[in-house]
Simulated assay, not measured.
Amino acid sequence: MTQFRYLTGLIGRDIQASLSPMLHESEGDAQGLRLVYRLFDLAADDMDAGDLPRLLDALHLAGFAGVNITHPYKQAVTAHLDELSAQAARIGSVNTVVFSEGRRIGHNTDIQGFAENLRTGLPSGSQFGKVVQMGGGGAGAATAHALMGMGVGMVTIFDPDRMRAQELCATLCTLYGEGRAMVGQGLSDALVDADGVVNATPVGMAGYPGSAIPKALLRPDFWVTDIVYFPLETQLLREAKAAGCVTLDGSGMTVHQAAGAFEHFTGRKADAARMAASFRAALTGDRR
């Protein structure tokens, strides 16, 4: 018999198309849990980052088990939490907040989600000597740390906020070794000897059309991955595929980070394969 047990949700901006509610609720149903997952779209509610403390207060008081955090609040939310996991503290980015015993504890499951997607999604023998990454924000911090943990030789990071890119690169070099991260100067030069390309920006999402990489710079020897999953094939991935690149969409990262968050919320291990099947079914319109 299914019982009501967990209130959860997602805080972000322009997130009406998110499939996170389906992912978490379907896994809860499969495990005999009554899990409710709500969207808190600050754009739709005419709110901004300054409203985060009030919103967290309200959710905590309402008895929520926790909430996920997405663009653009993964870094801003850290100032309003009581504690960060070691991993979240190291990268300064949170995608999962757990309310426990009167405290708000921040975690980051994006790192494991991104790394697992690369491990299982790219062909065996893919090269990881040098990677060019677009974006150095909350999601970009997670993907960059994941790349370092997977043994990538060097990551070159491009971000419109140069100071943010510099701070991320400094942190990466301190933790993983000097010279393993640098701020990009010119994109075409950085791509000359790159093995892979990561888009860790929202560019390509339904609300942020376009591509983070001009198609003229794409070469068939690249692997290219995008953290965006809606649409599943972004303009970047479509143009990369046409250029002969190996491509990897953001669905695997989304599923694996959700599985980690589900475990934080419920204390139960999620079935990532089952969540992936639900996710693919939802994307193709088969929601049976």
Rank of each mutant, 00 (worst) to 15 (best):
A76P: 01
I227L: 12
P214R: 07
M148S: 01
L19A: 02
A242G: 02
P160Y: 07
V224K: 06
T143S: 08
V155M: 00
G210R: 10
N117Y: 00
L218C: 08
V203S: 07
V228W: 03
V155L: 02
D271F: 11
L283T: 10
N199D: 11
T171Q: 14
A200Q: 08
T171D: 07
F99Y: 09
L39E: 01
V77H: 01
M163K: 15
I157M: 03
A272T: 14
G140A: 12
E178Y: 02
G135L: 13
Q133K: 08
A194F: 03
R287Y: 01
K269C: 13
E116P: 00
A194K: 09
T96W: 00
F230N: 15
H107E: 14
A277N: 07
D195A: 07
G267K: 12
F128E: 01
V198K: 04
G32E: 06
D48C: 05
L147Y: 03
M253A: 08
V246Q: 14
T234V: 11
Y6C: 05
A243E: 09
V94Q: 00
A86H: 08
N199L: 10
S18N: 10
A170T: 14
L84E: 12
G50L: 08
G135I: 14
Q16L: 11
F158M: 11
G121E: 10
G196V: 09
Y229Q: 14
T70K: 07
F114Y: 15
A258M: 02
E263I: 01
R103M: 13
G12V: 09
D82T: 12
D226C: 08
V132K: 11
N117C: 13
M1C: 04
A62P: 00
A258F: 01
L39P: 00
S188K: 14
G252T: 12
L147Q: 06
F99H: 04
V77F: 03
T120Y: 02
S85K: 06
A206N: 12
V246R: 13
A277T: 14
L187V: 15
C169D: 04
S20P: 04
G184M: 11
G137W: 10
T8I: 11
L236H: 03
S85T: 13
G9M: 07
E83T: 11
N95H: 02
D249K: 09
E239R: 03
Q185E: 15
A190F: 03
I69A: 03
A258H: 02
L248S: 08
L19E: 05
F158K: 10
V97A: 03
T284L: 12
V183W: 04
Q31E: 11
A115V: 13
